[in-house]
Amino acid sequence: MKAVETMDRGDALLNIFIGMFVMFMFLPLILMMLAAFNSASPPSVTSWEELTLAWFPRLLAEDRLIGCLQNSFRIAVFVVPASVLLGLSAAILLTRLEGQATNLLYACLISPMLTPGIVLGIATIVFWRHFGVGADLYTTIMAQTTFIASFPMLIIMARLQRQDRAQEEAALDLGASPFFLFRRVTFPFLLPAILTSAALAFLLSFENYNTTVFSIGGSCTLTTEIAAQARRAHTPVINALGVIFVTVTVIFSLVYTLRKQWEK
């Protein structure tokens, strides 16, 4: 009886702790979002002036911000297919190869995930300077692909490991060409993993800051521009952008969770 009581007390403590933890995670975000609806500038929640939506249309007038946003998309357009292709190739090789060399290859290919982003950015601009290419969107595409490709690799590998190899052998026995086999059996099987990793690659590219800021030189992406503005001045326009970011994230998270629940 006593043991049960202490367990309940432990659970109560745990509940209080996790409640505080979640509050800690949400409080700054909520404050930031509230300040976006206050007419006071610099943004504040404590000196409330007037409820307003005026900061949202102001976003459209920020020409530089919009130019940088376009750069973010330009980069992602190249990074996403490149990362998925590299990740897919590596996943296929790693699943089918055996021996010590494979472990080394594996270690090399996940090493960019464990490398500080700024080091990847620096190595990229140093490398391309040798060929006379200055730091710009192009170097950022290279630097981002270096580590983003590791994520599709892991996702696709996980799915490949669940593949029933008898299927492939059967197809080959029945006279299918290897290319036909890949197009009609392996690729469709991998498609969900490929789509998931493309979505993830887009998010990683779009949201990346530390690698990007070291490899982009004088150009900008949405994230480098947010950081530059956040350091220079504290304006409610960025808070309005924050509201959009958080809202989109919440919607996607809920859709993702609900879909996962529904699939069960």
Binding site: F26, P28, P43, L203, V250
Partner: peptide, 29 residues
């Protein structure tokens, strides 16, 4: 709980940092 933890995890890193200015500002929280 998973969703409650996933949302702040997925919000852009810069926005999470920027949010703290509301707390630390001269006229902040």
């Amino acid at each position: 709980l998973f969703t409650a933890l996933f949302v702040p995890y997925a919000v852009n890193e810069l926005m999470r940092i920027y949010a703290w200015l509301t707390v630390f500002d001269l006229h902040g929280l």
